[in-house]
Design a protein around this nucleic acid. Structure first.
Lengths: 151, 151
DNA sequence: CACGATCTAATCGCGCGCTACTTTATTGCT
DNA sequence: AGCAATAAAGTAGCGCGCGATTAGATCGTG
């Protein structure tokens, strides 16, 4: 006594009506696509995101990194320790504000950027969206994130 | 010597050009929105997804559940044990095929459905997308998942 | 019927991701 | 200056997710 595609999504408890599930499944599927490529670089997906930020702006605090990636220090601290252990970056207390920790790429970390250039190309290819679809998707996802985040 | 919005996204290493990041951030933001609602039901987000499936089709194998949610048994097995420990479902070896485990809701698990009805309504509201945007987003996300998964 | 290939769950190890909490440093107020 | 409030990073605990592996059941082919 359930279906009839009455008002799709509005209050439905059917899995396939849920945007949240489409989102969750897509996110994991895309990350899974990245995995073999990132394995070659010795990186996990969140580690790759951290490096994307650092390649754009080296010398950044944990706080700023968290703001850029929307991640808590409780997630970033151990992740950054692992990247430091792999020799890709250094963490150092700031002298002007000892609460803050400055993250800086090592030469190895900076050099990895060249090897990473192939990644977005391969992924863009695998996603198989037109330029318009890609732009539209990004736009919708940002709107959604914005709506859902701000009170 | 980097920017100039030359060909957005095509091979860029800028975080904000990455569809994958928009996806990853949106997924976490939406799940975060669910958290307080699901807390009231004593559920995590993936547990809620499992129940969505079971409310649609009770008596299902771990394999089928994994196919529906795109999750491995290594994720589902412990998750199902926790739901069993909370009294929401039962796991039982099938007599006709002893490899398979049948998942069945308890009365408590089935009854939780009524309390869950409020969830999609509240979330739909918080997402703040028009019906068209919602449908378009789902469509794009499914296309993306399909492209990225196959092959 | 035998026996190797396949299938199903489950386990283990590891890296997130988040909440709650702690520690240390800085700021703001009087 | 003194001290509460705030801020930054980190730790602990828990629940995913996933790759790799394993144990046991079933299937397929000779």
């Amino acid at each position: 006594m359930n279906p009839v595609p009455s008002d799709p999504a509005e209050g439905s408890l059917l899995l396939d009506d849920q945007l949240c599930f489409a989102l969750y499944a897509a996110s994991r599927a895309v990350i899974a696509r990245y995995r073999p490529l990132l394995d070659e670089l010795g990186l996990t997906y969140p580690q790759y995101l951290v490096l994307l930020v650092l390649w754009e702006q080296d010398e950044i605090s944990v706080r700023e990194l968290g703001a850029a990636l929307q991640l808590e220090s409780s997630t970033l601290s151990p992740l950054l320790k692992r990247l430091e252990a792999h020799g890709l970056l250094r963490r150092e207390r700031r002298s002007d504000d000892e609460r803050s920790v400055a993250i800086r790429l090592t030469d190895t970390g900076a050099a990895l950027r060249e090897r990473a250039r192939a990644v977005p190309l391969a992924i863009g290819d695998a996603m198989g969206l037109t330029r318009e679809q890609d732009a539209l998707a990004k736009q919708l996802l940002r709107l959604l994130t914005e709506n859902v985040t701000t009170r």
